[in-house]
């Protein structure tokens, strides 16, 4: 542990880990520091990667003054900060949400519905393919609430819950593994990089 970078990173890592004992001033300090640093980082990245190349550079290099329209609409977003002016921020929001909704309709239908249905139907000749189709139909029937889930519909829905449990179990397993590997990474940093206890 020689350089300042390691000392700072170690101190902040221990501050966050101290939450395992209970909430304390060290944890709270690190928590607020993380909020401030993250917001500051986002601010710089937004300005450097979006506002500067899309607005300032375009006006200065190609004289594209049309970008002043979205810039003005963007500035209207700041009206949200004053209650009496907040209505003005609806205009850029409406453009963003309306355009996003329109573009998402064909994209969602293509990627989430048609592509998934066609992929599910492609390997029907194999046992795995049949299991996939049965799984898709039974899981979807679990979310079909227009009819009471009894009889065939009820049995399909029940089968669907088993497939859902497999999915949730797999997702949970992956989540645990990813968190554990992050923890191992932090412990490696403390024991190897900071204190040199392990090689």
């Amino acid at each position: 542990m020689t350089d300042l970078a390691t000392i700072v990173a170690l101190a902040l890592t221990l501050c966050i880990l101290s939450f395992l004992y209970r909430e304390n001033p060290f944890y709270r300090f690190a928590e607020y520091l993380l909020v401030g640093v993250s917001v500051g980082y986002s601010t710089v990245v937004i300005c450097r990667n979006s506002i500067y190349p899309l607005v300032i550079e375009r006006i200065s290099s190609s004289g594209d003054i049309l970008v002043l329209i979205p810039a003005a609409l963007g500035l209207l977003m700041f009206a949200r900060l004053k209650r009496s002016w907040s209505g003005l921020s609806r205009l850029p929001l409406a453009l963003m949400i309306g355009f996003g909704a329109g573009v998402s309709i064909p994209a969602m239908l293509q990627a989430r519905v048609l592509k998934q249905v066609s992929s599910s139907m492609q390997s029907l000749a194999t046992l795995d393919g049949i299991v996939i189709v049965v799984g898709v139909i039974s899981t979807m029937s679990y979310f079909y609430f227009s009819r009471k889930q009894e009889g065939l519909n009820g049995r399909l829905a029940k089968l669907g819950t088993y497939f859902l449990m497999v999915f949730f179990g797999a997702t949970f397993g992956f989540t645990v593994m990813s968190r554990i590997s992050l923890l191992i990474g932090r412990l490696e940093f403390i024991l190897r990089d900071a204190f040199g206890l392990v090689s």
Binding site: L73, M77, L95, M96
Partner: peptide
């Protein structure tokens, strides 16, 4: 591009 610009300003509003 317009939506990207407005979105960037919206994030700045959040930061502010």
């Amino acid at each position: 591009d317009w939506v990207q610009i407005i979105f960037a300003f919206a994030l700045l509003v959040g930061a502010l």
